Amino acid sequence: MVDGLFVEEDAKLIKKIPLSQHMSEDSLYWPYTTLGNYTCKSDYRFLKEEEELQLNAQTPPICHKRVWKEVWQMQALPKIKYLLWRACCNVLPTKQALMQRKILEDPICERCKRVVKDSELLSWMIEKGKSLELRAYMACTIWNQRNKVRLNLQASPLHQVAAQLAEMLAHFKASTEASGMQVRSNGSRGNGGQAPQAGFVKVNFDGTVFGELNKSGVGVVIRDNNGVVLASCSEKLTQAYKAEEIETLAAQKALMFTHELGFQRAILEGDALGLIQALKSQKQNLSPLGSLVEDVKVYSNHFQRVLYSYVKRNGNSVAHILAKHAISIPDFQVWIEDVPSHIVPFLYSNVTHLH
Rank of each mutant, 00 (worst) to 15 (best):
E49M: 10
Q277L: 14
K324P: 00
P18A: 07
L273A: 13
M168Y: 04
C89T: 09
T248L: 09
L289K: 08
M125N: 04
Q54A: 08
F257E: 02
I329R: 02
F172E: 06
K280L: 11
Y310Q: 00
N191W: 03
H159E: 15
N144W: 06
S20M: 13
S291Q: 15
D224W: 05
I276T: 11
S131K: 09
I14V: 13
V91Q: 11
R146K: 14
E167M: 11
L92I: 13
D26H: 07
L77E: 12
L132A: 07
S179I: 03
G192V: 05
L121W: 03
V311L: 01
R150V: 04
P196D: 04
N147K: 09
S328G: 09
A251E: 05
K148G: 06
A243H: 08
C63L: 14
N191I: 09
H22F: 15
T33R: 10
K202D: 01
E50R: 14
K130W: 08
Q197P: 04
N37E: 13
R114K: 14
K128R: 13
S123I: 05
C88F: 12
S185W: 06
V209C: 02
L122F: 04
A243M: 06
V306W: 00
D331M: 12
V311M: 00
V201S: 04
